[in-house]
Nucleic acid binder design. Structure first.
Lengths: 154, 154
DNA sequence: GAAGGGATACTCGGATACGCTATGTCCGAGTCGGACAGG
DNA sequence: CCTGTCCGACTCGGACATAGCGTATCCGAGTATCCCTTC
């Protein structure tokens, strides 16, 4: 899993806390977490395309949450950044080679089913937590975030 | 997730069905699924190091299950092939940059907790299924496997 | 016929290419704010 | 003084390099089995 996921989640939580401050520029977000500015921008653009964030261009522009934090799940962020494909992809190797000769395979691949079930459990957990839950889990960070943001230059 | 996981699981199921035939050589296993022989060997060596398979050298050698199929979970195979590291690794970016100034962070990172919980759910599902379960899920393949294996040359 | 030595086939471990994706960087299009000229 | 226009700074967006890892291959070393020679 790419590190952009951690970046995206932290940015979403921060944007949730700063939603009254208007759009936050990529320059400030990169300085906020000491991340490479251009690459972080690329990842947030993916979140924008997925409808998780909304961006406004121009000198006073920046990124902000496209929806209320209660309506953005961790799964939304992960899917937007990692793609919708499953981690395990069944290539149906059972149907190739000598071992497959004379077989019908009317049943679906049991291995594929098992892996899919595990991945569904993973997705269910991620879909059950929202950005709002993460925000509520660190109330003291909300105040510090707003305080430090107000002191940022430019 | 690497495709070696699918290979390893199918090989374990096949070795479970052929456990009365003695060790199965890597040449037969590669031909069985039409896989690159050398690379498949490399993956099965990883399973051997992890104690899932046992290998015997020599002209009549090959690979076989190191334990009864009921005692080999899908999680064992995945861990042996993908490594024990978690997919999501928290880099604690919240403690870097401008946003961290003046913070104690006595609580652990909520994002890390959420991701870990999801990954535990995934691991629990995989640890709940064994090679024996996969074997039982496709009984008609067992007979075909033994039949086709008996007809294999060399 | 039994014992010893060589040949064979197989596994193991490491060293070496190749390709794809994640990572990182760049430039162009668009937008806002202010300066400036004209009325 | 007010207004309209132009310029510059800043932003997003997408296109263009680079690096690291998964994939794939090859080679030498070790070992057990088999065969063949020899006593």
């Amino acid at each position: 899993m790419g590190e952009g996921v951690e970046w995206g989640l932290h940015c979403c939580v921060t944007l949730g806390w700063l939603k009254d401050e208007g759009p936050v520029s990529i320059r400030k977000l990169a300085a906020w977490f000491d991340l490479p500015q251009e690459y972080l921008k690329k990842r947030l653009q993916a979140l924008t395309r997925a409808g998780v964030l909304s961006s406004v261009p121009g000198v006073k522009g920046g990124f902000s949450l496209a929806r209320p934090p209660e309506q953005i799940t961790i799964m939304d962020v992960v899917t937007a950044l990692e793609g919708p494909a499953e981690a395990f992809r069944c290539e149906e190797i059972r149907q190739r080679g000598v071992g497959a000769e004379g077989g019908r395979f009317r049943r679906p691949c049991g291995i594929s089913i098992a892996m899919r079930r595990a991945e569904l459990a993973w997705r269910r957990e991620l879909a059950g937590q929202t950005i709002a839950d993460l925000m509520a889990g660190a109330p003291e960070s909300a105040a510090r975030t707003r305080r430090n943001y107000a002191r940022m230059p430019g």
